[in-house]
């Protein structure tokens, strides 16, 4: 296991008086004939980084798709900034930046056009749009690729472009599905830095992965999903970091019953 960096898990929750930015209550969803997510209850404060761990098929992507507004839950509620997401789907435009798994792109558009299209879909225009585009290009080191078609980008470049699109409008909630996929070690380090910067600036980040080191490196809290249900949820201090791997394998291999109380 990689030793946690100095500021790993340092994302401090805001004062208790502030309502959670994201609240999942009894969330459930059937998919492909089986219960992909069941009775999921979680909350996330501004500035927190939550790692959603689980083996393939645990329900992580389904959960993130529902949080991002791409999929409707069968049951339960999602509250964003205190408001019911089902009643106000337009909240997604302003509040959420989503990087889906494998960063889907429009092959025939350039990197720059992607950012502009995402910006317009998020309500940006004119000088604000150009400024956001240029900032995202610089931050993800995509400046040299600005005029390149998405269809010819490498997998790592696609992933960086997907992340740039998610970050473009500086959303208060970042939903990242396997963000380190296909990134080289240098890019992974840059990704971790960006996630910490966003959290330090007050954004809540929820990232899913099946790589334990991703969680231990940046997350302040962890939730483990298995067969669609929440099996473990806890703040992540140094002692927990050491024990996390053992806990994860216990759950993955033995299907352990729910552990610490869900947050």
């Amino acid at each position: 296991m990689i030793a946690p960096t100095a500021d790993a898990g340092s994302s401090a929750p805001p004062p208790a008086s502030q309502p959670p930015l994201l609240q999942l209550q009894g969330l459930g969803r059937r998919r492909a004939g089986r219960q992909a997510v069941s009775e999921l209850t979680l909350s996330l404060q501004r500035g927190e980084i939550l790692g959603l761990l689980g083996v393939n098929g645990a329900g992580k992507s389904t959960t993130l798709s529902m949080i991002a507004g791409a999929l409707k839950p069968d049951r339960g509620t999602i509250r964003l900034d205190g408001q019911d997401f089902a009643e106000h789907p337009e909240l997604a435009r302003r509040l959420i930046g989503w990087l889906p798994e494998r960063a889907p792109l429009w092959q025939e558009l350039t990197v720059s056009e992607h950012l502009e299209a995402h910006g317009r879909l998020r309500g940006l225009s004119g000088a604000a749009l150009r400024q956001a585009r240029d900032a995202a290009l610089a931050r993800l080191e995509l400046g040299d690729l600005a005029r390149r078609l998405a269809g010819v980008l490498s997998q790592g470049q696609r992933q960086r472009l997907g992340l740039a699109c998610a970050l473009l409008h500086r959303p208060p909630l970042l939903v990242l599905d396997e963000p380190a996929n296909a990134l080289d070690p240098v890019q992974v380090a840059a990704l971790r830095r960006i996630i910490r910067e966003e959290a330090a600036a007050g954004a809540a980040v929820i990232l899913s992965t099946h790589v334990l080191t991703e969680v231990t490196a940046v997350c302040g809290r962890v939730a483990i999903l298995h067969e669609g249900t929440l099996r473990y949820a806890s703040a992540l201090d140094d002692a927990d970091r050491a024990a996390l791997e053992r806990r994860f394998f216990e759950i993955a291999l033995q299907g352990a019953k729910p552990g610490k109380a869900a947050a």
Binding site: S65, A68, A70, E90, A92, R93, R102, P104, L105
Partner: peptide
């Protein structure tokens, strides 16, 4: 895979 992306923008 870009259809869910459009939906996620509200």
């Amino acid at each position: 895979g870009t259809l869910p992306l459009l939906s996620s923008t509200g």
